[in-house]
Design a protein around this nucleic acid. Structure first.
Ligand code: MN
Ligand code: MN
Ligand code: ZN
Ligand code: ZN
Lengths: 140, 140
DNA sequence: TAGAAAATGATAATCATTATCACCTCTGAC
DNA sequence: GTCAGAGGTGATAATGATTATCATTTTCTA
């Protein structure tokens, strides 16, 4: 469970499990989808009005480092976060008209990325891949 | 040639060929690699000190729309541009330690991207793919 | 060559994110 | 219990790349 992973990560680094982090974690996990820091802040604020926006930024970055969240950038200048499931990685396709987005996973592509990296002497750590197109609805 | 492409693009849209655009084009084409707007601005400024930074931003965007430049984002918050060769698309691998970057092209990946898009009802327009890893030098 | 349309350069504005810093909270010696 | 230190928080200022604004200048065409 993600809460366990966070507790483990925090204790391994002498970091603390605070009420703010607990709350942000709970909201983040129940949220699903791709959430920006500001969106999450609005939700969290409703439960704890005293919370600061900087804390949400900091905590989402912390979740990424702990491996339970992944930053996604669709190119609009805003970072979004989604739950990270190391068993089930996926990438995204976005409609340039309506911004609807679809998740997909393609093990063959992942394999080839790995091979390309090795071929050029790199140990692959991660990748970003976003496809941009026009969805069926927007094509008329 | 790229200059021809620009002239064609401009005249087709009632846009004008100015000395600034000519100069920025020449510098951009002779530059090669991945250039940020600011880097290009510094070079251009040496040849024409009166030029404005906003003009460089505007012109690089124009080149992208005209199809002779392509915006590349490596995730450091800066947009870079490189010459676009529609015959020879490529993607990038970046070292997370030294930021050295390598270009590669993999037609099979491109095919599979196209297929994934179609499979989800999208007409694929473009994609961004950047691999992050550690290069041979930085691995020790 | 005149006039409309577009471009330019200086400058201010934007806006997501980060840095700063005074204060708070916890934990573990003593 | 007291204290000290490490880490955390919230308010706020700062950052920095990019874009918007606008008065002025330039281009192009009829
Ligand atoms: Mn997703
Ligand atoms: Mn390149
Ligand atoms: Zn759509
Ligand atoms: Zn390296």
């Amino acid at each position: 469970m993600a809460e366990k992973a966070i507790i483990k990560y925090l204790s391994g680094k002498n970091l603390k499990l605070t009420p703010q982090r607990k709350l942000i974690l709970e909201v983040f996990l129940n949220q699903g989808g791709h959430v920006s820091s500001e969106e999450l802040y609005d939700i969290v604020k409703a439960r704890n009005p005293g919370i600061g926006q900087a804390t949400v930024y900091r905590t989402l970055k912390l979740f990424s480092e702990a491996g339970i969240a992944e930053e996604v950038r669709f190119g609009d200048g805003v970072s979004r976060y989604e739950r990270k499931d190391s068993q089930n990685h996926h990438d995204h396709i976005i409609c340039e008209k309506c911004f609807r987005q679809v998740e997909f996973s393609d093990p063959t592509i992942e394999d080839l990325q790995e091979k390309q990296a090795r071929k050029h002497g790199f140990d692959l750590i991660s990748h970003r891949m976003v496809l941009y197109g026009v969805c069926s609805d927007c094509r008329e």
